[in-house]
Amino acid sequence: EEEEVKMIMMIREWKDIPVELLMQILSLLDDQTVITASHVCHGWRDSISFGLTHLSLSWCSKNMNNLVLSLAPKFTKLQTLILRQDKPQLEDNAVEAVSKFCPDLQVLDLTKSFKLTDRSLYAIALGCCDLRKLNISGCSAFSDKALAYLASLCRKLKVLNLCGCVKAVSDTALQAIGHYCNELQFLNLGWCEQISDVGVMSLAYGCPDLRTLDLCGCVLITDESVIALANRCPHLRSLGLYYCKNITDRAMYSLAQSKVKNKMWGSVNGENDEDGLRTLNISQCTSLTPSAVQAVCDSFPALHT
């Protein structure tokens, strides 16, 4: 009893407020006020360092690089860091600081970091092995070698957005992803024009849990990619094939049939079958006939095209 009273007396000093109480208040505030709060006193700074798991600096339209360099060494428990940019600001040294000081990071958004080079990807690969979600869409300077290296070390990735990473997303990189990132559920490969069936098939074989795959603008892929996905990815719910001009009716019929196969497979495992395509984007797939599309719609009543 006495112990408890003592504890409560301590709380009467606001500089000694427990981490969870301070964080309860700060969780209601914007990131700028959180940074302000970390300047109040040593006690608050240490509490925030310990308690802060989520930070977004996307509002920072200037000085984001300096701010990341300054904050990363303090906020070492971050699990989510959102650094989306309109104008590119981030440089490799900031990403290197994040990788060095924030090993618990699970979600990292670097959308439109045009200035970053492979140095950043290597740093993330070595420092943030726990990463579940990575968004590097629009980071056009990364090479496929660096992306393959990242895939080999960040094996827990579930969500990967590579939209517009034209150089990085090659068949070699996709083979590495298919080989190492077996838990992947969401992958955006929009406008990665150089990939072919070889790459997509390694994904289909290596990532059985894939739920959402966007291949819009991947102009080289053919029916073989879609057939492999239909056969190997029973949980696929959303497939984007916008502008994939090589896709023919064969691909549609393979999707329609996958439903039947998966149902049998699902019932063997006693699963309550929530799976099945919900979203399919086939606009600008000019070779498709209405009857093939109708076959897919008949198989998946919940489907929106």
Binding site: I35, T36, H39, C60, S61
Partner: peptide
């Protein structure tokens, strides 16, 4: 740090 936080906003 504060200057970086509040400029550019």
């Amino acid at each position: 740090e504060l200057a970086w936080t509040f400029t550019g906003v």
